[in-house]
Amino acid sequence: MTAFFFFPIAIVVLISASLVIFFRNPVHSALSLLLTFFSLAGLYILLNAQFVAAIQVIVYAGAIMVLFLFVIMLLNLDKVKKERERHPLQKAFGILIASLLLVVLGSVIASGILYGTKGIYTVEKVAAIGNTKAIAGLLFTDWILPFEITSILLLAAIVGAIVLSKKEL
């Protein structure tokens, strides 16, 4: 059942992610990225991570993509000149280096190194208490300090964004 859904979703992820870098128009790239986010949410559901799937849709597909589209429309890119290539070999070298990276990552995965001690949250146990409840239980006990530091990070981001985008303070 999982395999039945995995391969179509994986193909959609790969195609839409490739289209992000192939489209010339940034709006088309943004919409393609939106499709990638939604299909990744589908993969999270296949992995029994329902809460992560929900915040993937809400935070990424909702908040971040709206921010992207908003900026694209704010910038009025019609006036901007088309991307032209400064260095003719740039594309070839970029793809070459990225494929080398893929070879490295692939060889690590192929070697089958997956260390780590097994935790206590098996699929059945998480299903019994509920995915969101289990995450909340961990987040507000063991991970409370990182959680609070995150709030400081968000505050810094808010202040930074306002300072940067104001014309004069």
């Binding site: 992995l47 991570a49 097994k118 935790g119 206590i120 949250y121 098996t122 289990a134």
Partner: peptide, 9 residues
């Protein structure tokens, strides 16, 4: 990997 290791971290 979180699913593989039965962990929610």
């Amino acid at each position: 990997i979180s699913k593989h290791l039965d962990s929610l971290d």
